[in-house]
Amino acid sequence: MDNALVASHAHTHEEEHEHVALPQHRHHFETEQQQREAGTFGMWLFLLTEIMFFGGLFFAYLLYRNWYHDAFVAASNQLSIKLGAINTAVLIGSGYFMALGVWAAEVRKKGLLVLFLLITTVLGFVFLGIKYVEYHEKWEKHHIPGEHFDVSEFVNPQAYGLKETPLAPDMAQKTQVFFSLYFAMT
């Protein structure tokens, strides 16, 4: 009964083929299972390209961390683990609600879909807010790579009330690579 209704709808739609039952079924797939498998496969393949995309950055991080170990240790201690952890949870949460949104669309629950999309958006803004706090701190401390970059906090940590081992000025300069990667990756 349900199928018949949708099938008659398909006639009016240019792209749909006559023998197709469900509206989300595209004309060029033989079966619905084939379509689902192709979709899943395509998604994982795209995620693989993302690994290669960020792989370049991870590789750069690995390389420079080995070269400038002390500078990377000192610079990474500047990051707030608490804010970073919260933001990771926020991101995973928004991804989770987006996935729920896809499920809601599949079972055609429009209200739920809108709700999940809204939550995803809100979490997106929460992420940006926390990011603002983090970036703002880097800005005030002159830890943004470029002309105004300032290494005094790494050369003379005691003066800033930090318990870090002081870095030689040339090694302290390498913290700039760390922050370059930090900003490029986040």
């Binding site: 995309f53 370049g56 300069q173 690579v177 490029a184």
Partner: peptide, 28 residues
């Protein structure tokens, strides 16, 4: 994707002054 990220880094280096490939900032 690897080409894409290396071009992104070049663009960021030109526009924002990041130093991943810049020897004066420790990059290579």
């Amino acid at each position: 994707p690897v080409l894409a990220i290396s071009l992104v880094l070049v663009a960021l280096e030109r526009t924002l002054g990041l130093g991943v490939f810049d020897p004066t900032k420790g990059g290579d």
